[in-house]
Design a protein around this nucleic acid. Structure first.
Length: 212
DNA sequence: GTATGGATGTTCT
DNA sequence: GAACATCCATACT
């Protein structure tokens, strides 16, 4: 079944346009907030998978919870690329995590993508995940990476390059109200309000109605 | 619906 | 050894 029949509202959505680097705010917190409602697209050999970004977390310069806090290493090097590059790492022995670098080249900071609202290629995501329940496909950073087929091979990709298979797109529909809370799963810097999400969206992992 | 515990691999102390 | 930006299955209210 085509996505346009399965998701009737897709017909009223506008197509996503590739975002240029110059459109991304030059600040980790602002970028984290800005990315809610934008589109993440991965063009795969078997077809396109895409979703609306509905939850992000900022890991700015000077944040002790950020992977870049103790300086550049082989693992976190992509965080030190100019804003708009992918930083993908393996966590807890089971999950890949997709981040977007967020500052000038040489400065380490990033935005974690925590949840997507699936739009295109839902059948591909179901196969990649091995589940069919829509809300289980992309709710959570590990799940969305698996659904979108994002792993070490995408680490370091420039999401703003004109022909990159993995790219950021403009919003395809109006973005709902954005809420703010503390980040999920941290012990250090646990009080900081660096998590942004579209309020009430069922694909958001964790709290989706506080503050904002 | 919430709560808990185990599995898993890499990084750091 | 311990910690970790998680997920899944299971148990329970």
């Amino acid at each position: 079944m085509p996505d346009s029949e399965r998701l009737p509202s897709l017909r009223s959505r506008r197509p996503a346009r590739r975002l240029r680097r110059s459109e991304l705010p030059v600040d980790t917190i602002k970028l984290s907030r800005y990315l809610v409602g934008k589109t993440l697209v991965h063009d795969l050999p078997e077809g396109r998978v895409s979703g609306r970004i509905v939850e992000t977390e900022a890991y700015p310069v000077g944040d002790a919870a950020a992977h870049s806090f103790r300086g550049q290493t082989p693992r976190n090097g992509s965080l030190f690329l100019a804003r708009g590059h992918a930083y993908v790492y393996f966590a807890y022995g089971s999950s890949w995590m997709m981040n977007i670098s967020s500052e000038a080249a040489g400065v380490g900071a990033g935005v974690l993508i925590r949840a997507l609202d699936p739009i295109e290629g839902i059948d591909i995501m179901e196969r990649n995940r091995g589940v069919s329940r829509l809300t289980d496909l992309t709710r959570g950073p590990g799940r969305l990476a698996q659904a979108m087929h994002i792993n070490k091979a995408q680490d370091g990709l420039d999401l703003c390059s004109p022909h990159s298979p993995l790219w950021l797109g403009s919003a395809i529909q109006p973005t709902g109200a954005v809420g703010i809370t503390t980040r999920i799963g941290l012990s250090r810097e646990a009080h900081r309000l660096f998590r942004f999400f579209e309020r009430g969206n069922p694909f958001v992992s964790g709290p989706r109605s506080l503050l904002g």
